[in-house]
Design a binder for these strands. Structure first.
Lengths: 210, 210, 210, 210
DNA sequence: CATGAATGAGAGTTCATTCAT
DNA sequence: AATGAATGAACTCTCATTCAT
């Protein structure tokens, strides 16, 4: 009859919720994610979600912000103190790729948010998104200044990298299946290093000279 | 006491539902789309949706297949009877772009489906997706054969095009906002022709020689 | 295994809900009334309440308005075509009393609404309340004009009648109990006719001459 | 890591809860009053409410009893050592009125309790109610004995006074509004003294001679 | 005495789906 | 082919209450 004693540790519980929420939101999207399911994944009472995050929307924003912060930290860490735009761009792509690989749910969450919500993104969230994009545009700008990159439209290049990586990560299962069933060439045996290597090479190429 | 009963033929009603469902699903996503709202958009009774499509899931699949078919038709029409891979690739990109522009909800619906559902995509749907991808790989294959394209990983190139175009379409509002509010360079004044032109140029470049 | 076939009669169902809601709201007050309980009282699905009335608040307003209308109809019917303020006042009191007696929950509902909600009463509801009060003040006004009533503050007289009758109705059980247990004189054997007779006599007296 | 723990004595905390509970219960009613809100009003932890009062219901009863006691003390103080029923009745009305005016939530709480709970009033509460009523009936009884009052039904007279005063207090806002919006004569400028004066005059009148 | 974390039951509400007509 | 009434399960969220510290 010994009941399992609950942790009664605020930080741990809050983090547990945050972590599982990230998984669920990115796997199922906002509205298909149920607070009931999340709670049972955490082995916590439903009410605790609201105790810590007030509302589903509040939890969602917390998740997105955490994701953006985490990605930003990774990228910023790699890119400081180098003064070589080409190298910095490579780093950006590879860091983002390996991050996506180890957190496969995060990038899809991010891009889903970008396309879905149109104009109703909260301000905090918005400013977090901007930081990431600014980090990227600065690399390109410096690249243009030193004559490494040409004919740059940063927004499009940004989405080229993010969009491609995201799709390669999220379609992994589907690509495997398609390969097995129909012998289609879906890059199903490519690992993340190869993929990011390829993307890097190609992006560098398309930015080079006139 | 005679009730007014709308007399319409089956085909018209079914199509009406399909068209409005496409709009709703792509604007709001699967779970946020309500059959109630759809019915009232069609000026039809809720039950009719189930009469024609059995279930929400069934309707959704019908929508996706129709979308894929429509896109395929557009792309196939443009690309037959030309025997110039570079030109064919340009056509593919531009056709897909202009299609996305005039049906802004469709590509996002497609890509959402790709990343979301993982392995549980129904067979019919799966085969429709394959057709589109095969059309694209054939262009690249011929390009390699005649020495126009080099070092091609079709899956990645495919996603580069689709992912970028899709993100540029779906983030339109957000990019406008970010530009107005913070003066960020988000390509907010670019129109679809410029965007697809740029992508085409860059993709062609990255495929050219070693 | 024969299931009870549901009525599928909109008017009947809606009325059933309205009637039971009136009982519950007046017995338990707004917030203690549960839509779950109401539904099972009606032997209907909870969702039907929202199908017919949109929200708990909507149902509540419908109930109040119906109650006010019903009371108004009773009172207005009795009081037309008489041109004798004293008689009209008697009628008002007795009609309201007998109405309260046969619909014991209604007056308490009304008065609860009056005191509870302070300023947030919806407009429709407000105008219904006014109609009733205006009916009453007109009687007093004519009484003053013809020299039947003196020194009239209509609002206070109005509440004297309504408040007393309401309390006598709603405390019936409690008064019976107090009488049985402690022999207290709580007018527990008085029937409604006697009570309204007494109130009428006393109110007439306090309005008579200087 | 030493947590700040508020040190207060038991009596102070208990009283604080009681006082705020009285306000909340009478403003919002039993079920709309939340223990959460009450706790934060008291700047105390929610659990303390249960530490001191066991349950919400227990707290509620404590509140009601305290209210009854307070009213009783006021009324009893005024009415002893006078031997003039008319004067005593005046005192009763005016004391109760001024008490209602300065504690506008209490009478409504009381009357709500009277009508609501029917037969399930706890014994302690019941006996407190009786004390108040007995005080009143004694005044009337002595009045009859000395030939001041005639044709008295104490229960009805009691409710006439309590009901009217309670409604005048609780409808203050509503009456103001109705006056401003529609110019209705709702006694909206009357202050409590005038009101109780009027009620006293009228009650005295209706008790006088045959 | 006091706290904050945790809980279970239930609240109002929505929604896909079915059924009788 | 079409309707509107009806349902059951799920949803987000609230709340009184308890427990470990």
């Amino acid at each position: 009859m010994s009941k399992i004693i609950k942790k009664r540790n605020a930080v741990a519980s809050k983090n547990l919720i945050l972590r599982n929420a990230t998984k669920l939101f990115s796997k199922k999207g906002y509205s298909s994610t149920s607070m009931e399911e999340l709670a049972s994944m955490c082995d916590l009472n439903k009410a605790m979600i609201f105790y810590y995050f007030d509302s589903k929307q509040g939890l969602y924003e917390a998740v997105i912000i955490e994701v953006l912060d985490e990605i930003y930290k990774h990228l910023a860490k790699e890119n400081k103190s180098i003064d070589n735009p080409k190298q910095e761009l490579s780093n950006f792509i590879k860091t983002f790729a390996s991050f996506s690989d180890s957190h496969p749910y995060l990038p899809s969450l991010l891009l889903k948010e970008l396309s879905d919500s149109g104009a109703k993104i909260p301000k905090t969230l918005f400013s977090h998104m901007k930081k990431l994009y600014t980090l990227f545009t600065n690399i390109l700008k410096r690249g243009e200044e030193v004559g490494d990159f040409f004919d740059v439209v940063p927004m499009i290049i940004y989405f080229m990298i993010m969009g491609t990586l995201n799709l390669m990560v999220t379609t992994k299962n589907l690509r495997d299946m398609a390969h097995e069933m129909d012998g289609l060439d879906t890059c199903s045996t490519c690992d993340m290093d190869e993929i990011s290597e390829y993307i890097d090479k190609k992006i560098q190429k398309l930015l080079k000279d006139k």
